[in-house]
Design a protein around this nucleic acid. Structure first.
Lengths: 136, 136
DNA sequence: GCTATATTTGCAACATTGTTGCATTTGAAA
DNA sequence: TTTCAAATGCAACAATGTTGCAAATATAGC
């Protein structure tokens, strides 16, 4: 799946900022913060353009936001197929700060109070990744 | 459990801002945002004092932060006994914005990649509470 | 390839929240 | 009552979120 194909599939114009963001996310298998995405060319696009482009990509379902417990935000591409799974689980390494999506492979149950309805469940696992775990 | 008892138990000075915040949290069975805590007396304490007091109370283990998927933060008292449970689950009503702690009553499993270690798990369930569910 | 048009972008400006330093005030122990 | 570490208020700054508007640009139709 190329960047151009993704943009076409979601009926989005092929603009510089979108191509840049999607290219960075495609190259990385970890989720990236706005700052991490910008890193190779910090001044290439205006702050506001970046902000609005990320918002658009999220609203159209191309990417999703991951909010960590320290209040920082990372972004990752959605799966190619529209994601029907209401359980969004991510792993955050407290040492190297890397964030991974845990697709499937997770299970969550909750007894909610009577008449409560659950729409989506967001899970963040804080811990150490394999690399950082070995170093310690 | 009174505010004074809590402060004494955690070996914290009995100051105005601390008493105010803990009183508000004790009265509410929902988690509260900084703004919601301040609501009755918005100008009673300086913004910075409020910020630092919340930080102190969190560091000392009196309260805990809940980071929602929309990036907002709420605060709630910890249980009286030091919380050893690494699973922190909360419910957020998307309509009335109320946040509840789900103590126990939740179960989470994840197959992490090899050699990954989990320390804490933060869960936020987005949905509708009983009241808002009935109205819709 | 050219034109028209809706969309995207950059800039300025402002809002909100997080954060630090420092001088003053205050809680509580002696 | 005195003393001192701790808490508070103020000023200031940083980071992030957000809006309005004019200029630039992607693409659909000719």
């Amino acid at each position: 799946m190329t960047v151009d194909e993704i943009l076409h599939q979601y009926d989005l114009k092929n603009t510089g900022c979108r191509k840049f963001i999607l290219t960075e996310l495609l190259q990385s298998n970890a989720a990236l913060s706005e700052e991490e995405i910008k890193k190779p060319f910090p001044e290439l696009f205006d702050r506001v353009t970046f902000y609005r482009t990320l918002k658009t990509l999220e609203e159209r379902g191309v990417i999703h936001r991951i909010v960590l417990h320290d209040n920082t935000v990372k972004y990752a591409l959605n799966g190619h197929h529209p994601d029907q799974n209401p359980l969004h689980a991510h792993f955050h390494c407290g040492k190297c700060d890397e964030v991974l999506c845990l697709q499937g492979k997770t299970r969550f149950d909750a007894e909610l109070p009577a008449d409560f309805v659950s729409h989506e469940v967001f899970v963040v696992i804080e811990g150490l990744c394999a690399g950082c775990n070995h170093l310690s």
